[in-house]
Write a protein that binds this DNA or RNA. Sequence first.
DNA 1: CGCCAGGTTGATTTCGCTCAAGCAATGTGG
DNA 2: CCACATTGCTTGAGCGAAATCAACCTGGCG
Lengths: 226, 226
Amino acid sequence: MRKRSDWSVLGQDEVTLLASGQSSYSYSAGESLYSMGEAGDGVYCVCSGTVAIRRLDAEGNSVLLQLAYPGDSLGYEAVLTGEPHRCNAEALGPANVCHIRSQTVRALLDKNPNLGLQFLRRTAASLDDAQDKLVHHATLSNRAKLAHLLLILMDRYGRLTADGASTLHLPVSRRDLASMIGARHETVSRIIGRFETDGIAYFSGRSVRIPQVNALVEEIRPQLVG
Amino acid sequence: MRKRSDWSVLGQDEVTLLASGQSSYSYSAGESLYSMGEAGDGVYCVCSGTVAIRRLDAEGNSVLLQLAYPGDSLGYEAVLTGEPHRCNAEALGPANVCHIRSQTVRALLDKNPNLGLQFLRRTAASLDDAQDKLVHHATLSNRAKLAHLLLILMDRYGRLTADGASTLHLPVSRRDLASMIGARHETVSRIIGRFETDGIAYFSGRSVRIPQVNALVEEIRPQLVG
DNA sequence: CGCCAGGTTGATTTCGCTCAAGCAATGTGG
DNA sequence: CCACATTGCTTGAGCGAAATCAACCTGGCG
């Protein structure tokens, strides 16, 4: 597992140090790893399951910013800056998560600069992702954004069926889908209804059937006449 | 100048190395530092002026993602990952910018791990900023987003006048303002008109007069009845 | 002078939000 | 086991915000 994460840059003795300073926890659906405002007590590394990174605004609206998967490290910003966590982290289903204490993280960063560079690459990728979302929020309709989100979720949760169609089991609720594209959940319901009447995607609970993936791709392009 | 930037963590001999691998350039308004798709050829450090970081989508819409000020370092993601630049960087006015070649950057990162951690802290701050923008885009009206943007710009460009009001010289065009809040430029024009009839802010070209800053803060809170 | 980019304004339409009701699945306490 | 709340989702009606399309204005600038 460690091989496929940011910690793969560590040498043998550093792994020993890591092992001595980590503990492993099991979370069940809905359990919180940490919350906004808390002080960082270490880095969380997802071993299995999916973790949702959420932020709340002043009025209590929750926005799902990111999904974290096995291999992802969470919460190191707070360790690095000494600032409290800016997001909530919550297990979406049963999940195994390792916890490495701040002290150990700092020792490892000190011993092996490559770990810091690895975190930097990871953070830069997250920034790139967030900026892409900003561009989409600024230019796409809700319908196009939902289509785009489905395509992204397909990469991880999609399965190709025998007849050439695709199926998808959504990891999140409709409300979360809505917050991910910056829309109300009623609006998401309506768009889903229109996707079904247009034959683009069929929803049943959290299961989605997409006859032709290409039809979703077409949805993203803004309404061109040609 | 170096003292107030990410490079302040360097030691004496590293500064010498830095000096040997850098060159200084002057840009005038509208000139490009680098463009999307180009390979990273080093890190750019803003010495004076303001640099706009933009991203274009597939249809050519430009979104202004970030403003970079003296002390900010740009373009290190591309150096670090080997990927091409994901954004355009363009001087908004006359600007002095230092350029440190990739080779030198890598040597410095190798010599002094603190430089990498500094970049990491900087990138984490950018990510936090981008995520805040995502939350705002998801929950606020265009009017509230424009009010919020004006408050942010006041921090850097605002001046307090004798009568307790504030003035502000906008560094960007109306179109850019619009792209920053994810709206059309016509919409920004109309909101500006409403701000004026409501006595909240008065615009003349790129000059803005804000009688009471607090009125702008009120705009951000969503429409509560109480 | 004509041209053009940047900005404003108007008319109209569309999209998405709000408020509200209703429904199915799930849970809880008596 | 049933009455009853609760939660997540869907659907409808009406409205308001913002996009679109278009005209027009202004200040540079070749």
